[in-house]
Each structure stands twice: as C-alpha cells, then as structure tokens.
Simulated scan of single mutants.
Amino acid sequence: MNKIKNIGVLTSGGDAPGMNAAIRAVVRAAIYYDLEVTGILRGYEGLINGDFMPMDRKSVANIIQRGGTILKTARSDGFRTFEGRKTAHEQLVKHGIDALIVIGGDGTFTGANLFSQEFGYPIIGLPGTIDNDLAGTDFTIGYDTAINTVINAVDKIRDTAESHDRLFIVEVMGRDSGLIALRSGIGVGAEAILIPEAKTGIEGLITRLEHGRKDKASKIIIVAEGDEIGGGFNVGEVLKERFPAYDIRVSVLGHIQRGGKPSCMDRVLASRFGVSAVEGLLHGKSGEMVGQINREIVFTPFSHAIKHINAEEISPTWLKLVEILSL
C-alpha cells in the first residue's frame, strides 16, 4: 500500500449523468480506507486557482440521483500550458493532497496524462462522458442515460411524425463519435443513421429513402452532429430539395442529452469505478483509467484510453442492422 493520506477529486470537461454518483463513491471509499478527501471545484481551472474544499460523508449525501456535478466543471486554457500545470502541482503540494482522481473524457485524460508524466504525480481517471468514445471500457459514465434520453425524446417525436405523415431528422450529440446516434437510432427504429465514422453520404441516404417503403406513416433519421454532411439542418435542406413532396422537420436535441437523473446502470457503474479508483491508487496505480470490460474492472493507460475507439470497424455491422430492421 502507498502512503496516501489525502485524495483530491475533480470533474472536468462536459458534464455527464452519473458524475455525482462517482464523486460519492470516491469520497466514501476514501473514508472507508481512513483517508481524507479534498474536492476541487471547476476542474483543472480550480486546481490551478486552489479552489479546494474538504469533503466528508455529508458532502455527498443525497447526490447519487442528481445529474450534473456538485464539484462543477469548466474548460481550462491555463492547464494546457506547462506553467499552468506547474501551478496546479504547487497547489496540490501546498494543500497536502497526495493523489488525484479525475472524472471526465478525452480532453481530461490528455491533461492528466501530461501532468502525471511531468510531475510523477499519482492520478487515476474515471471515464465520465456521454459519448462512450474511450478505449478501455465497454461503457462510460453517462452514456446509458444519454441514449435513453434520446430514445424518450424520439419516441415523442415519432408520435407527432405519424400524426402528420412527416419525415423527422433528429440531430444528437456526437461531434467526433457517432455512438450515441448508433445505439439510440437502433433503439427507436430509425430508417437511417448518419455518423462521422461511416461515410454514408447524402446520396446513400437519398437512395435509402427512394427504395424504402412508401406506405410508412413516419420516417425518423438520426444524425450525429459531426456527420460529414454537417448536421441535421444541412441534411434537411438537401432532402427538402430532393423530395419536395415530403413534409420534413428537423429537431436538434442538444444539451438535454447531458442532463437528467442518471440511470441505474450509470449509478452502479460510477459507484464501482469510484471505489476501484481509490483502491487502485492505494495499490500504486497511476496514469491509468478505470474501466469495465466484460463486467470486470480493468485499468488502461491514459495514452491508450484517449485514442478513440475505431468505430470504423464496428459501424458496418451496426449500420447493416439498421438497414435490416428498417425494412
């Protein structure tokens, strides 16, 4: 066991449902192992500014069901510089914080990886991102809640689409990754899914619509915001020109996908990750992300975790499934 007495915890990047459950697990696991816990407000920016607060059991009472993050989150240009990271390290030493747990996604782990290498400082990461785009875990904290939010919204859109014989284009989050669009699109029975990883192209979509069933009362097309065509409104403009007879509407779900109470899966996943992160630090692990693969806890080096999943390899399989089910 390492001589760790005080663990700092922060959330960084975009918020994700289940972050509070992860914070709760970190705090309570640390207390279980007779450690102190320091909450760091507003991510790496708070780390640089020394915006710290001690945490105890009461600090995390009644938060497991809450969305967002009680520690707040913020982007930090300062942490992108060596000077900023040096100041952050000085703050940790000054406040007697021996190790750090960071909850976030790709950008968060990129910064953590640099920091760990530069200062030899113990850091463990928890994958908190709705995009599910990190290698080293089957699911990230927040992904399950986000796709269920999309499904609930699109189910409601389908009701009005059927009532008016409309084609709805629904844009979901996913600037660099289409995993939200893929899984939610299958879940809602979408006629087509457009994602950054699969170069379907507008002509492929048009072909699908031309050869699809004409008697369907409604059609739903799910578009990831990072699709090569440029998002939902661009797709809508092209289709309106090509299919003037269609009653086409565009709906952008936006940030509702980040909010809301975390699902049971996200609460349990976050809780398991939080405890494992504390135990990992106590056993000398550092520079790694906690994940779950085939139901087992694994640790993946930041350098590998931040290399996005190669969705190009899985997209054809998933998209073929969409094609079969949309007949």
Rank of each mutant, 00 (worst) to 15 (best):
R80A: 11
R80S: 10
F82I: 14
F82P: 04
F82Y: 15
F82T: 05
E83V: 06
E83H: 09
G84V: 08
K86T: 12
H89G: 04
E90T: 14
Q91T: 09
L92I: 10
L92E: 01
V93N: 04
H95C: 11
I97C: 03
A99C: 13
A99P: 02
L100D: 02
G104S: 14
G105H: 01
G105M: 12
T108Y: 11
A112I: 08
N113Y: 12
L114V: 10
L114Q: 09
F115V: 08
Q117I: 15
E118P: 07
E118K: 04
E118V: 13
F119K: 06
G120T: 03
G120L: 09
G120H: 10
G120C: 10
I123E: 07
I124C: 04
T129K: 05
T129M: 11
I130L: 11
D138A: 09
F139Q: 05
T140L: 06
G142A: 08
D144C: 02
T145R: 00
A146T: 09
A146D: 13
A146I: 04
V150H: 02
I151P: 00
I151A: 13
A153K: 06
A153N: 07
V154I: 15
D155G: 05
K156W: 05
I157G: 01
T160E: 13
T160M: 08
S163P: 08
H164E: 06
F168E: 02
I169Y: 03
E171P: 00
V172H: 01
V172T: 03
G174E: 03
G174P: 10
R175I: 09
S177R: 02
S177D: 07
G178L: 11
L182P: 07
S184C: 14
I186L: 15
I186R: 05
G187F: 11
V188K: 05
G189D: 12
G189T: 05
I193R: 01
L194N: 04
L194F: 06
K199H: 14
T200W: 03
T200K: 12
T200L: 15
I202N: 01
I202V: 15
I202F: 11
E203Q: 14
G204E: 07
L205G: 02
I206A: 15
I206W: 04
R208S: 13
R213K: 13
R213A: 13
R213H: 10
D215T: 15
D215F: 10
S218T: 04
I220W: 11
I220G: 02
